[in-house]
Simulated scan of single mutants.
Amino acid sequence: MTTKGHALFQTAIGACGIAWDGDVIVGAQLPEASETAALARLARRLPDSVEAEPPPAIRHVVDRVVALISGERMMFGDVALAMDAVPDFNRKVYEVALAIPPGETLTYGEVAKRIGEPGAAQAVGQALGRNPFPIIVPCHRVLAANGRTGGFSAHGSVETKLKLLSIERARTSAEPTLFDGDAGFGFAARPQR
């Protein structure tokens, strides 16, 4: 039995992918244009991995990702991620992103300040664009200044980012809305900075 594998799984936004080595996640992927394209990308990224049924620890992560994309509040800071080959700067960025709760956002500049690199907002964006663990490391929760979406490297680009933020009922701006204070709309509080 091989310890390295990858699999697709269905979510509310389409087929996502996950790859593992034992009980450690080595990659994740948002939906592509087709399942065939998603599998091909996983195979290219991880040539020594085989398509397989996820082991129990990985299946648990898959179930949590499905729940998150279905609107449940899930955090993934406890998930074992293969960070060995991740540059130190990127690792710091991913650690900050992992701590952003569903429904909340930070800006690239705020992430840069939190890692002790004020002025490195552009580098933060580049690190998030190379995120090998999207959804698990929630790069979609990081926005450009003034509530602009910034980029998103997944298939569907910014539309996918906005879809994920919408599922999480995230505010993309600190500006007040007509519905502030009305918990029925899921926007009862302004984003925490």
Rank of each mutant, 00 (worst) to 15 (best):
P138C: 03
V93R: 00
L164N: 02
N131L: 01
D182W: 05
A170D: 03
I167S: 05
Y94W: 09
P138Q: 01
P138T: 04
A127P: 08
S157N: 13
G181C: 07
F185L: 11
I135H: 03
L165I: 09
R141I: 07
P132F: 05
A120D: 13
E104Y: 03
K163F: 04
S173N: 09
E168W: 03
D180R: 00
G103S: 02
A112N: 00
N90T: 14
Q126P: 00
R190M: 12
E168K: 01
T149L: 14
L143T: 07
A174T: 15
E110H: 02
Q122S: 12
D180P: 00
A154G: 15
A123R: 15
T105P: 05
F89K: 08
D182N: 12
K113H: 13
F133V: 09
G151C: 08
G129S: 14
P102A: 11
P87W: 04
G129A: 15
G129H: 08
E104L: 07
A145L: 10
V158H: 01
Q126I: 12
A170M: 06
I135L: 08
K113I: 11
N131P: 09
A120K: 14
G150N: 00
Y94F: 15
G119V: 04
G119M: 04
L165Y: 02
D180Y: 01
G186L: 05
P191C: 03
G119D: 08
A145K: 12
E110K: 11
V86C: 08
R91A: 15
S166E: 14
S153H: 07
G150C: 01
E110G: 10
G150H: 03
P176Y: 04
P138A: 06
T172F: 04
L98H: 06
L178N: 12
F187N: 07
